[in-house]
Structures are given as structure tokens and as C-alpha cells.
């Protein structure tokens, strides 16, 4: 089992700044392992977004560019169109992808842009200290919904995977989680499949990873996993939402 803790080559040895129990560290590892196992590190370009994961440009060993808040899919589009033989991915939080970057996300999917998006849904704005996200749950208490998210005044969470799966341009959309070994394995498989599809020129792929933010949820890492299971998973069911090539696999 010692092998499990070996650092993937696609991760640098820079110590990560994430809080204890934060999902970002696990998800970085899964992305890096997928890159390693496909042997694509040397031709992969990553796009970091604005959020807690902004410093992912220091953590991934691939060439990296840091995009403005919400713009990562557009930046990735430019990178990919410049050198289509490169593998291009973005790594984005829910505020970045589903609020300020909604247009960029939807249209990258609609165009069938041949990129991979790793979308980390932790139901909150982590970096700015715990404000309501487009994916915060009904009733969820955050700094900017101190009485709980009131759907009558601020509306409902955005279900990104369900929404994007309606677009003809999307090739593969799956929602995964990191709350237990089984789900982490499934997440690893999904991320690898998304990158594989990209290398095969199959088009737009997005993996939504249901994750934790113990710090801004105000919970211990253990309790955060419990909260994810009890609250997020019922609202955000896991599974494949779109796979254009399902029969052909």
C-alpha cells in the first residue's frame, strides 16, 4: 500500500496550501495520476482558475496558465486552437465555473471544444471565506446567506452536469465524489476517461467532483465528509450524465 502515497510525476514537490480535509488535494492527485497513466504530461497544458485552487499552477508539473475568474474555458479554447495536439484541461471551482464563468462554460460545451474541465463542486466560495455559491444547497448557511439559502429570494442551485448534458456539443459529462475509496476510484476512472476522450478528439468533457470545504462549512474533516454524504449527494446524484460514445467503448 506504500505505493499509494508516492507522488505522481505530474505533481510538483511544492507543498500544497490546502486546509486539512480539503478535497482539492485529493482531486489534484487524481488528475495527476490520470496524466501519468496516459503518459501525456509532456504535451498537457493546464489552466488554473480563480478560487482556492488558483495556485494549482505551482502544483501541476505541466505547462500552466492562470486565467481570470470564470474565464478558464475561453483561455483553454485559445490554447487548444493554437496547438490542437496538446491536451488541455481547466481546473475550476463552482463560483468560477457556474457563476461568473457560466457563459464561458456553456459555450465551450456547446462548441464541443476538445478540452477537459475538472469542476470542483464544494457548494461554497472557499477562497474568499465562505460565501454562497451557485451550488450552495437550499437552506445552506454561508457568510452571504446567514439565515440559510432562501430559494424564494436567491433561487436554486445550478446542477451543472444535468444542464450541460443537454448540449449536443458535450461528449462526456460525469459527476463523481471523493467521500470514500469506492467513489474516489470511480472519480479516478472518470477523469482518466475524460482525458482519453480528449486525446481521441471526441470533444468536450467535464467531470464534476463533489468535494468538501471543511474550513468554510465550519466542520471537522470527518464531519465534512458526513455532511457531503447527507446533504450534497442527494441533491447532486452521482453518475454519467452524458456519454456520446457509450455504446462504442
Amino acid at each position: 500500500m506504500a505505493v499509494v502515497f508516492e507522488r505522481p510525476h505530474a505533481l510538483t514537490d511544492v507543498p500544497m496550501h490546502y486546509c486539512p480535509g480539503c478535497g482539492h488535494g485529493i482531486i489534484h492527485r487524481l488528475v495527476a495520476e490520470a496524466i501519468d497513466s496516459l503518459g501525456i504530461e509532456g504535451k498537457t497544458i493546464g489552466v488554473a482558475s480563480v478560487g482556492c485552487s488558483v495556485f494549482s499552477y505551482n502544483y501541476f508539473n505541466t505547462d500552466m496558465v492562470q486565467a481570470a475568474h470564470g474565464r478558464a474555458p475561453a483561455v483553454a479554447t485559445g490554447v487548444k486552437r493554437a496547438n490542437p495536439e496538446n491536451v488541455v484541461f481547466t481546473y475550476q471551482g463552482d463560483g468560477d465555473l457556474a457563476a461568473i464563468g457560466t457563459a464561458e462554460t456553456v459555450h465551450a460545451a456547446a462548441r464541443g471544444e476538445n478540452i477537459t474541465i475538472i469542476f470542483v463542486n464544494n457548494a461554497i466560495y472557499g477562497m474568499t471565506g465562505g460565501q454562497m455559491a451557485p451550488t450552495s444547497l437550499p437552506g445552506q448557511i454561508t457568510q452571504t446567506s446567514p439565515y440559510g439559502r432562501d430559494v424564494n429570494t436567491v433561487g436554486y442551485p445550478v446542477k451543472v452536469s444535468e444542464m450541460l448534458s443537454q448540449l449536443d456539443g458535450a461528449a462526456y459529462i460525469e459527476r463523481v465524489a471523493i467521500n470514500n475509496t469506492k467513489n474516489i476510484r470511480a472519480a479516478a476512472k472518470a477523469i482518466k476517461k475524460a482525458f482519453t476522450y480528449q486525446t481521441e478528439g471526441k470533444g468536450f468533457t467535464l467531470i464534476e467532483v463533489v468535494s468538501t470545504c471543511p474550513t468554510n462549512w465550519g466542520l471537522t474533516p470527518e464531519k465534512a465528509m458526513g455532511w457531503l454524504e447527507e446533504n450534497m449527494l442527494p441533491y447532486y446524484p452521482l453518475g454519467v450524465y452524458k456519454d456520446k460514445y457509450a455504446d462504442k467503448n
Partner: peptide, 26 residues
């Protein structure tokens, strides 16, 4: 060459940023 009509000027300029990052004349 590549011509791409973006969904907004915001996206267009960020596509330029991506392509410029990749080293092409854009």
C-alpha cells in the same frame, strides 16, 4: 488558420490570452 466567433468580447479576449500563451501570433 483559425477564425472563431466567441460568445462575448470577454471570451474572445480570453481566447486570445490562451492562444498568445501557446505562443502563436493572435
Amino acid at each position: 488558420g483559425v477564425f472563431l466567433q466567441a460568445e462575448s468580447e470577454v471570451s474572445a479576449v480570453n481566447m486570445v490570452i490562451g492562444a498568445a500563451s501557446a505562443g502563436v501570433r493572435v
